[in-house]
Computed example of a mutant assay.
Amino acid sequence: MTEASSSAGPGSALLGPADVRRLAAELDIRPTKKLGQNFVHDPNTVRKIVSAAGLSPDDVVLEVGPGLGSLTLALLPACASTVAVEIDPVLAARLPLTVAERAPGLSERLTVIEADAMRVTADRFATPPTALVANLPYNVAVPVVLHLMAELPSLRTGLVMVQSEVADRMAAGPGSKVYGVPSVKLAWYADARRAGPVPRSVFWPVPNVDSALVAFTRHEQLSTVDRKVLFSLVDAAFAQRRKMLRGALAGWAGSAAAAERLLVQAGVDPGVRGEQLDVGAFIRIAEVSSP
């Protein structure tokens, strides 16, 4: 019995280190750190991720960048179905075969969409996904999450593995040194928190950075203000972090005087910096600026 078979979860045989290397060799994939190709090869880690995601049997899970299928095989027994969005045509074609080989009883629960997660649209999903669970490429993690939360209102929960520093920024609150654009924009959609570290040793090849899990739960829409207006405001507020808001928002509002008038009208001190405001304060500013 192989390591992966002996450590299999219910209904599926998870991939171990030897399985991951064998699949990569079969597909002539030579993962590089430069391209961010780091495959999870530890069955215990993917089990922990699925457990931490708190999935229900009715959930339709969206997985972004399934790669060789390590996490996919752990997700399939835990939910109604899994939709894997994979940009690489070779990996997208191999994934259903891997599932058929290692979890034949669960093959019908998998749908693979060959697409860029940054551009995938709601009409590509036959059934709206309810949960996002993914090991995200480090360089696009935040844009992918924000795009999917905007495009798929059906997504109620998420658990994503990202670079540890990105996890800090996504889950940060006002006043933190790492609080910034990702923190506020994700807070527009959901309540987020760090959900634990992920050791480097569970990846192949071993990355140069630490990883962590971020969990989030969508909340009710906070305002009817135009999201594009709000997000442009947030971008402006953090573009020059050292500036007080009256100066940082001068270009966005038309002048420093106009920015100060809007801030006062929104009940925000013009002398504070963006990192001191929660999403609610940014919403008030955006609301008073909108006709």
Rank of each mutant, 00 (worst) to 15 (best):
V64Q: 00
D168V: 15
P31W: 03
D58S: 15
L55H: 03
A171R: 07
P43M: 04
A190W: 02
L71S: 10
V50T: 11
A84G: 11
S81W: 10
S81P: 09
V202A: 09
V60Q: 09
K177Y: 12
P291G: 14
A141L: 08
I49T: 11
G175C: 11
V144Y: 06
P270W: 07
A248Y: 01
R22S: 14
A215K: 12
A141G: 12
F203G: 05
V46Y: 02
A134Q: 04
M161P: 04
P182L: 04
V202C: 02
P31L: 05
A253Y: 04
A250L: 13
L213N: 00
R273V: 06
P174Y: 05
A115N: 13
K34N: 11
P207K: 00
V60E: 11
L152R: 01
R193W: 13
A253P: 03
R284M: 06
V214A: 03
D59S: 10
A24Y: 05
D269N: 14
V206P: 07
Q221G: 13
E165K: 05
P104E: 03
G271I: 08
E165Y: 06
I285H: 04
R218M: 08
F238H: 00
L222Y: 10
S183P: 05
L15I: 03
G54L: 08
P207A: 00
D235L: 08
V145C: 11
N139A: 13
F125D: 01
L75T: 03
V264N: 12
R193L: 12
R30H: 11
P57Y: 09
P197S: 09
D28Y: 11
A190R: 02
S51F: 13
I29H: 04
V181P: 02
A131Q: 12
L68W: 01
T130P: 10
G105V: 08
R94F: 07
D278C: 12
R156H: 13
W252E: 03
P174N: 06
R94E: 14
V184L: 08
L71T: 07
S5Q: 15
A253K: 02
V279A: 11
A100C: 08
R94S: 12
V288E: 01
E220R: 14
A259F: 02
T130K: 05
S5D: 15
P57Q: 06
P270R: 10
E26I: 00
A52K: 14
R273A: 06
A25M: 10
F39V: 03
V288P: 06
T82A: 15
S183W: 07
A25F: 09
T121D: 15
V64K: 00
A259S: 10
E220P: 05
K33W: 07
V144H: 09
S255I: 09
S70A: 15
P207V: 00
L73R: 10
V120K: 01
S223N: 11
G67E: 06
G267P: 05
P207S: 01
I285K: 01
I87L: 15
P270N: 07
A237T: 00
A192K: 03
V46D: 04
V142N: 07
A141S: 14
Q240R: 12
A93H: 12
A187V: 08
E86K: 05
K48T: 13
M161F: 07
R47V: 15
R218I: 09
L146I: 09
